[in-house]
Amino acid sequence: MFDNLSFNSNLCIVFEPQNILEMADIAEKVKSIIVEKLGVEASEVTPEASFTNDLGADSLDTVELIMEFEKEFNVSIPDDQAENIQTVGQAITYLEENAK
């Protein structure tokens, strides 16, 4: 099946070099999104930190975070994958693997 969305995002990444993100950039961007959306201190945003248990996110905050990651990194995160992104580290890992 021809997947229009991923085709577009692939095209984007292949032909627009500015969208190729270094891994360090991904981690930094993820952290800044979390600081912005959850209103936490950057020092709290450690790889082990859980959005809900450590950073005070409720279920709506978590949905909003996933959407922000999708927007920022131009990816589509399916619900079954999103459920597995519970910590800062899991978000960074997922995006490093899928935002390229």
Partner: peptide, 9 residues
Amino acid sequence: PKINPFFIP
């Protein structure tokens, strides 16, 4: 529909 989860509330 990338609607923000806080939109309705």
